[in-house]
């Protein structure tokens, strides 16, 4: 069994110094990562951070520019074919054949994993049941709703019972109901012991599903740990102040800057938030200072930091800001 140098035996994914450039644009700038077997690992970052590029390299769709990576003990370049026998991939867009039925889609994918026909059929049927598609199993996928297509796509990624499953933004574009359904399905998988690498730009999603999270930004892993470890990084709790007058947001940010670093202004929500210590006593101080500055408070919260706060404190930006889609995003979007 091929074990690349540096691979500890119970790691499902090992990434060392991985880079990827498109011309002059660096999508990955030296990623190191280790994912142990049997967990859901979340890759969290905004659009264009390099998450999809990393997944594409790990699933052998693209070669890296430099560095090395292995999945299930197989090197992405030297053992690409063996690697592909050990993985399942559900990409950003449901890769489903519209003109085939749900069952036919699953059976075909199973056959491409070289499972015997009878076994392929058996697994297709059982996955159709498991993903609640029984009534739709004999209908063409073109008649499916967005949520059904994603479930079928996920089922296709699972048909070979892969050791490692890659889910690239599995719930992007889904309605809340379908998203919840898919989350439940992923949680079941995790309980079954499949290693899952999940990319997402939804902090809530990583928080709920992943037992470990790597935060990716501009082609680098900028933080890694469990959700609670990452939240510790914010430095305790978060004070969030909603102001009555949006014109006072900047002034509020300046005032809150005294209590913690990098206060974040959410213009749409009329809210300024900042990481503070554990001492709830700070609240009285915040109220007093704001009052003195003549700032009218609409709402005030002293809460556990969310992963949003983590991303903010790590990068100084919100994870879901649309307006910092940089060149990397353009490149990554263009090559999908």
């Amino acid at each position: 069994m091929p074990v690349p140098p540096g691979n500890s035996t119970d790691a499902a994914i090992v990434v060392r110094g991985l880079t990827k450039s498109y011309g002059k644009v660096a999508a990955l700038r030296g990623v190191d990562l280790e994912v142990e077997r049997g967990i859901v690992f979340g890759l969290l970052g905004p659009n264009g951070a390099g998450k999809t590029t990393l997944v594409r390299i790990l699933t052998t769709l693209q070669p890296p520019s430099s560095g090395s990576a292995s999945v299930a003990g197989f090197d992405v370049q030297r053992d690409a074919e063996a690697l592909r026998r050990s993985i399942g991939l559900a990409g950003q867009f449901a890769a489903v054949d519209d003109q085939l039925t749900g069952l036919e889609n699953l059976e075909l994918v199973a056959r491409f994993y070289h499972l015997p026909r009878v076994e392929a059929r058996r697994r297709a049927r059982s996955l159709i049941e498991r993903f609640d598609l029984v009534e739709a199993g004999d209908r063409r996928a073109i008649t499916y709703s967005g949520g059904m297509r994603r479930r079928l796509d996920l089922a296709a990624a699972l048909v070979a019972e892969p050791e490692v499953l890659f889910l690239d933004e599995p719930t992007t574009g889904l309605d809340p109901r379908s998203r919840l359904d898919l989350w439940v399905a992923i949680e079941e998988l995790a309980r079954g012991g499949t290693t899952v690498l999940l990319t997402t730009q939804y902090l809530e999603e990583a928080d709920r599903l992943a037992s470990r999270i790597a935060v990716v930004d501009h082609g680098l892993v900028i933080a890694e740990g469990t959700a609670s470890e990452l939240k510790e990084r914010v430095g305790g709790r978060v004070v969030a102040v909603q102001v009555v007058d949006a014109g006072q947001l900047d002034q509020t940010a300046a005032v809150l800057g005294r209590f913690g670093d990098n206060p974040h202004v959410d213009t749409a929500a009329h809210e300024v938030s900042v990481g503070v210590g554990q001492d709830a006593g700070v609240m009285a101080e915040v109220v007093r200072v704001l009052d003195n500055a003549g700032i009218a408070i609409a709402d005030l919260a002293f809460r556990q930091p969310s992963l949003d706060d983590v991303f903010l404190s790590l990068t100084g930006r919100a994870a879901e800001d649309a307006d910092f889609a940089d060149v990397t995003a353009a490149i990554e979007g263009g090559t999908r």
Partner: peptide, 8 residues
Amino acid sequence: ERYRSLPM
């Protein structure tokens, strides 16, 4: 994307 990730 799917086909390329399959062992064929």
